Computed example of a mutant assay.
Amino acid sequence: MTTATHDATVLEQYDSRAQAYLASAVHASGADLERMAAVIGSRPHAVALDMGCGGGHVAFRMAGLVGKVVAYDLSAAMLETVAAEARKRGLDNIVTKRGAAEALPCPSGSFDVVATRYSAHHWGAFTDGLAQMRRVVKPDGLALFMDVVSPGVPLLDTWLQSLELLRDPSHVRNGTLAEWKAALASLGFAVGEVATYKLRLDFGAWIERMQTPDVHVAAIRSLQRRASAEVKDYFALEDDGSFTIDSALIVARPV
């Protein structure tokens, strides 16, 4: 699949769902978001990047900490939603810019802080997106990476990726923590703090947010019913299909 083809799939999935992601409780809050804010602290003169901003929750949280935030996303509809919400909240230091993660149209060393949350598993070229973040962060800058992570065990990994893809065909892959660390190190980041979390997904809200077709919902529920005890236990699978996954926050700095 070409990058352009994958980007078209992403847009097909997300252009019509901007309001759902703005309203999503999973995206609007979380211990990782609060930890991100604590790590950044007050930087009134800093310029920050929210890479793959989606509904804008990272940008909104950073806006009160830094001087300027660039909310960057492939979807124009997402960016329009973020801009409208920023105006509503009186956050006049958020600007939006459209493009793919792998082709960030900003000069090198543009940002004091770069962050991404729940976006990288959609990138057609994972390391290329991370490389762009490394390129645009200042030598003394800060980088934060937040995403769902794979348990790494082949059985559990296959189960997680399958459900993600059935729900959303723009899903590429949830990497393991080891893969994240290796990729960041290879691109010139020194990994510091790593915090891990358990994220419960309410099945109804999870499906509704993506407007998953009924045939795919049925397939997900079929897989869940036939899952092994090991899978059901690890993901804390509930009778209604709700389940719990791993997520992580990685703090890194350029070297």
Rank of each mutant, 00 (worst) to 15 (best):
M1C: 10
T2K: 12
D7N: 15
T9V: 14
L11E: 08
Q13D: 01
Y14D: 04
R17A: 15
A18M: 08
S24N: 14
A25F: 00
A28M: 11
D32S: 08
M36W: 08
A37L: 12
I40S: 02
F60W: 11
G67I: 01
A71F: 02
Y72R: 01
Y72P: 00
S75A: 06
L79C: 09
E80H: 04
T81N: 08
A83S: 11
A83F: 03
A84S: 09
E85M: 03
A86S: 07
R89A: 04
D92M: 06
D92S: 12
N93F: 03
K97E: 00
R98Y: 00
A103F: 13
P105I: 02
F111A: 08
V113D: 06
V113F: 06
T116C: 14
Y118I: 09
S119M: 07
A120K: 09
H121P: 00
W123Y: 12
Q132G: 15
V137F: 13
P139H: 05
D147G: 06
V148P: 11
T158A: 13
L160H: 09
Q161P: 03
L165S: 09
L166I: 11
D168W: 10
P169C: 03
V172T: 11
V172L: 05
T176H: 06
T176F: 08
L177T: 08
A182V: 02
L187Q: 04
L187V: 05
V194M: 13
W206L: 03
W206F: 13
W206R: 04
I207P: 10
E208G: 01
R209M: 08
R209G: 07
Q211R: 12
V217H: 02
R221E: 13
R221F: 02
L223R: 15
Q224A: 10
S228E: 07
D233K: 13
D233M: 04
Y234P: 01
L249H: 05
P254D: 03
